[in-house]
Nucleic acid binder design. Sequence first.
RNA 1: GCGCGCUUAGCUCAGUUGGUUAGAGCGACUGUUUUACACACAGUAGGCCGGGGGUCCGAAUCCCUCAGCGCGCACCA
Length: 696
Amino acid sequence: MNSKFLTPYNPEETENRIYKLWEDSGFFNPDNLPGDRKKAFTIVMPPPNANGNLHSGHALFIALEDIITRFKRMRGYKALWLPGADHAGFETQVVFEKKLEKEGRSRFGMDPEVLYQEILNFTLKNKENMESQVRSLGASCDWSREKFTLDPDVIKKTQETFIKMFKDTLVYRGKRTINWCSKHQTSLSEVETESVEENTPFYYFKYGPFEIGTVRPETKFGDKYVVMHPDDKRYAKYSHGETLELEWINGPITATVIKDEAVDMNFGTGVMTITPWHSQIDFEIATRHNLDIEQIIDWRGKLLEIAKEFGGMKIKDAREKIVEKLDAKGLLIKTDRDYKNIVKRCYKCSTIIEPQVKDQWFVKMEPLTKLALDAVDKKEVRFIPDNYEKVFRYWMENSIDWNISRQIVWGIQIPAWFRGEEIVASIEKPDGEGWTKDSDTFDTWFSSGQWPLFMTGYPDGDDYKRYYPTDVMETGHDLIFKWVPRMIIFGLYLSGKSPFHTVYLHGLVNDAQGKKMSKSKGNVVDPMTLTSKYGTDALRMTLVVGNTPGTDLSLREDKIKGYKNFANKLWNIARFVLSQENTGEPDKELTHEFEALAKDITLDMENYRFHIAAEKIYAYVWHRFADEIIEESKPARAGGKIPERAGTLYYLLENSLKLLHPFMPFITEEIWGELSKENLLMIETWPFDSAQGKPI
RNA sequence: GCGCGCUUAGCUCAGUUGGUUAGAGCGACUGUUUUACACACAGUAGGCCGGGGGUCCGAAUCCCUCAGCGCGCACCA
């Protein structure tokens, strides 16, 4: 017996060595796996952002996806887990801008190409760091197939999809209301904003004969339309199109009465003025009635010339002063300070989103969401846990056209050209003179949405034929809107097939108190610290046992400690068994008992109940195998059965290692190596074959 | 406002399709230096399964309702 068994299990010493053994074996690549493997099983890894360290959420998904992959590999599938790295467009640009800020620099004014190159260098460096962390978590993914979301073929294919969609009239250029972040100087999609309820003063002003209410007096300079519901009896004497002279912020103006059903008669006074450039609903009303649309606030969030003396002021500073002026003019009627409204903010910097009207590219969602809903109806895609199907449907049924243009350099360029009113979608410059290239880049989710296709070499790669559609998409439930729907849509649109049949959604990893981890709260736990302290196997068990899909997890250090102890328990079981000579046939009763367990666990695994499977094998190994079977076998005990039991103990150890391997790959492989086996444990045969309904 | 989820032992959580005395880990308590392991072992205590109502032979599990907590979505100016 190896002398290393005389000391407690040492994960740090073991893990790198074992990982290298696996990687050098080539078996992460299913094409190298032994035996006649007919069926493929494929998982696409959600590519971690290459802009920093892995967090606990990454550790969780790597554990889960590795468990699935290792299980399927042992079950005889061509198991393929496709790793990637995400350039993470806007997110990385935000991280990089913070870095620039610290260095006293700013992206504004920088040459776009220089800026791009700098972010690229930054990202590639972080990519290596990220990859080494994924390895240290034991991921048995096929690195030979790794992709980066800015690989040349990914860029090209993304642009080709855009061109195809342009031809199919599924993308269009439109002047519409968009979410504008005045700090980051870019538009954002709905999922990149967050709405928070806030207490904002609600002002009532005298507007000619009317009383209007608003939370945004600073937008009111250009307001020359007063809108009410056509059925509102209070205002029946005013007719649509009628004009009125009235005194407003900067002097007398002419206002026009507009009747529109969008107005809620029961809210406020039932009358409002509109600012079409800076409000979605106002823009819609203005469009319906063909009204003037004028910009009041500039792209930096400051008031324009139209505000006269307030021009150049920031919204925050201007608001109160404008109210003061209106009050001085006797136009302020009252202020409701208890009013609560919803304020949209940039999800990265919390800057209040300023709705602006801008020419942008949009994806027409309705025909595409229909494809996705059909696929769900036909059960071509299912969700675990299944209540997410409802959430998914809700989003699909209510999604509005998707703004895919971003005014940042860090991303894939939109292949579009403009000349006057002409618009051409093309990677190359169109023939003729006077073309201007679109300077915008794609929303990251536009390319990430095609990730399962790109990872398998769509449209004509070998892997596309062999491994697409993939099987499971395992990701966080926070991506149910951002990512999952886009992948299903693009998969159906481009390949005619859903990119996967199962969506497994894991919960968030929170701190020990169940609070969300965040840098500002200072409660972030670095998974790398935990693995070096307790071992990767212990961390993986902690993240998996008792953690039901879709439910958030409180990461507690005492739990990890418990599984570190378990690793050591297993270590000592091995030590004990290895100290015996392997003689005698396995005991019939005990092997049957084990087979029943293996069957049970196999069913749990196949039905994605990893939280139960892990707990069962844990309980068996410790409390049945060690506490009872081994104890009873000891010669010192009355009726101790060594050495007749030795064969049984070897049988149970070997097969327990197999069942445990997906969960605790390092220590099981390490012990396996001491059993003088020909193969690596990672390619051993799983000890139960559910297809044949019997142990093998 | 709409939707989803949660509420089970001191703490963190399991409990697959309703079926015998409700489970785990940690913690607490009492013992044990028994040569695989003190990162251990043997054992003990602790729960009207959030409240109320219903269906059923039978409910932690299904239905209704109330309360508290968490999360998501939301163009009422």
